[in-house]
Amino acid sequence: MSAPPAPRRSYREAGARRRLLAVLDPGSFRELVGPAERVQSPHLAALDLPAAFDDGVAVGRGTLQGRPVLAASQEGAFLGGAVGEVHGAKLTGLLRLAAREQPAGVVLLLDSGGVRLQEANAGLLAVSEILRALLAARAAGVPVVGLIGGGWGCFGGMGIVGRCCDGLAMSEEGRLGLSGPEVIETTCGVEELDTRDRALVWRLYGGKHRIVLGEADLLVEDDLAAFRAAAASLLTRRRVLTLERLCQAQEALEGRLADFGSCADPVDLWAAAGVVAPAELPLLEPEPFLAAVARARRPVP
């Protein structure tokens, strides 16, 4: 008799630490500068906002299918996972540690709206430092893997950080972009982007569009075990920073702009990419979706 399949446990609904514990090997996670050390943001109290004991991110070490990794998980429920001074410094410290000790990889569970405006300058600078530390870790030969499936997705400067990973796994509900829908609506008006049009928001930012664009490598179910499997498989993927590869990426991105630059909506883009029934894509389950876009996908080298 075979065991019944394990029930799905939502990644999106789980908190930052539960995600981390489920993605890493059971019992392997050791947190660094954990909540009991109370390294909180000193900038929130002045704004009458409560701080969090871990400033919204857990960082530490563990193993993934037996391989030693460093890992971090952002808590989207706390200030939208936004990066402040402490939050950012924990991530930068982890990535610097990675460059030095060369683990099998770094796994980033991203769930963030970007820079924390309540400490804006420190937040922007922190994202910049994360970006430099991440690319330095990669240059030192350590693969960095990103997972996007939380409630906030991955936006602002963290959207740039996410795309600087060697490999990226997303759920359909995970969202990735630079300026989020609310920011565009507030800044440019509802004519540019109506956030009440949820279908449009998913078409623009959701995992499926990112897969077609080639911005995400794996589309996974909203399931903790599926994200764990995706993280393990991405650990072997490298996008080495060479002139040759970046020239190929340049060509691919210029091709994207030339071919899709005049599209008005992602559905038009999917059609232009060669998807046969583009309007159906949002309705498809992952497997038939991947079959439908297999030839239209444009992975960035």
């Binding site: 740039i160 630079l178 300026s179």
Partner: peptide, 22 residues
């Protein structure tokens, strides 16, 4: 900030630029 820029993956283009500087 525009819908079109997001559709075309602006964050990815900026990430590519950062990689080129690195």
């Amino acid at each position: 900030m525009a819908r079109r820029e997001e559709m075309l993956g602006l964050n990815g283009a900026l990430a590519h630029l950062a990689e080129c500087v690195e």
